[in-house]
């Protein structure tokens, strides 16, 4: 009813300046879209020919002017998995505390402010913090206490992943929180009325319904963490490594060595573009690496966005 009144009231004023303004803001919306597609088009156009099987599966050769980027892909995946393993439990637990336990007192507001601020900390500051705190403070002190020489007290994958974990923490917290809030309060009341304790209610009733949102947060965090460069600059990434960061557990089970440095996709783009011996000559490699990185993050983001749309729709049906 009201909709129709408003549209009747506005429909009359179709004059020139109104149309001009409509067109203007439409341009403001369209230009960034064009920018996105231009970015993608340039990368795909220049990178598609480079990305072949051998590019993906070989190590760089000839002073990093030939060969592939396999160690970078390997490092990026290993680092990101390690990061999620650290960040996801902490972030989900923090969100559960915020939604289910904290109420809305001073503690809630303090945590809220801290999460928002953490999201706004410049990425290079995370890099400094990772170096000062993880590598030099935690690492060096661990080495002294455990008498391990120089194992923890140097840049390595573990500290890079830990630094990134703090960086993506707000992403996971916010996404999980949203998912938890969207679970109807009546479901909690019903579970409690059946005699379940608060934790049983959260574990058996709330979390299963919020799974989609938690997953979305995890995917967004992975995509964010995979693309960040500045936080890992001084905490574990390497320009070039002749071997993969792999160690044989008990002598024969190969596993990723978190105490080794690693090569990374995003860092590879940076050094190839700015510090390569011949940046012109390696331009195809740069485009190829960029295409691989952006395919990875885009795919993850797309999945996350679709997931969220799907779960929001489903949640919408439930509450109606």
């Amino acid at each position: 009813m009201r909709e129709s009144i408003v549209s009747n009231l506005t429909v009359k004023h179709d004059n020139l300046s109104e149309n001009f303004m409509n067109g203007l803001v439409r341009i403001f919306a369209v230009v960034p879209l064009i920018a996105i597609f231009l970015i993608l088009w340039i990368i795909v156009k220049n990178g598609a020919g480079v990305v072949t099987g051998s590019f993906l599966l070989l190590a760089p050769t000839d002073g990093m002017t030939q060969g592939g980027i396999f160690p970078c892909i390997f490092g990026a995946i290993a680092k990101t998995v390690l990061m999620v393993v650290m960040a996801l439990p902490l972030g989900v637990a923090a969100a559960i505390y915020l939604v289910e336990y904290a109420g809305d007192g001073i503690v809630f507001r303090l945590i809220r402010a801290a999460v928002n601020n953490l999201a706004g900390v410049p990425s290079i500051v995370f890099g400094l913090f990772g170096l000062g705190f993880f590598v030099l403070f935690v690492g060096r002190n661990l080495d002294q206490v455990l008498k391990t020489g120089l194992l923890f007290g140097q840049p390595c994958m573990l500290w890079a992943a830990a630094t990134l974990a703090i960086l993506v923490l707000p992403v996971i917290i916010v996404s999980t929180e949203e998912a938890l809030i969207s679970v109807p309060q009546s479901h909690r009341a019903a579970s409690l009325a059946l005699g379940a304790t608060k934790w049983q209610t959260i574990w058996r009733v709330v979390i299963p319904q919020a799974r989609g949102g938690i997953l979305t947060g995890a995917i967004l965090a992975v995509s964010r963490g995979a693309g960040e460069t500045a936080p890992i600059l001084f905490t574990g990434v390497a320009y070039f490594l002749p071997h993969l960061p792999v160690v044989n557990l008990f002598g024969f089970i190969p596993m990723v060595n978190p105490f080794d440095q690693f090569m990374d996709l995003s860092y590879h783009i940076y050094i190839m573009a700015t510090q390569s011996v011949d940046a012109e000559k390696t331009l195809p490699i740069q485009y190829g690496t960029t295409l691989v990185l952006i395919s990875l993050t885009f795919l993850l983001n797309l999945v996350a966005v679709l997931f969220r749309m799907y779960f929001r729709k489903k949640q919408g049906l439930v509450t109606i």
């Binding site: 693309g227 460069t229 885009f298």
Partner: peptide, 19 residues
Amino acid sequence: TLELLAGIPSVVIGFLMLA
């Protein structure tokens, strides 16, 4: 679509600016 823009790693944008 705008969320996808937000998801482009800054090193990629930096590279395109440079190149």
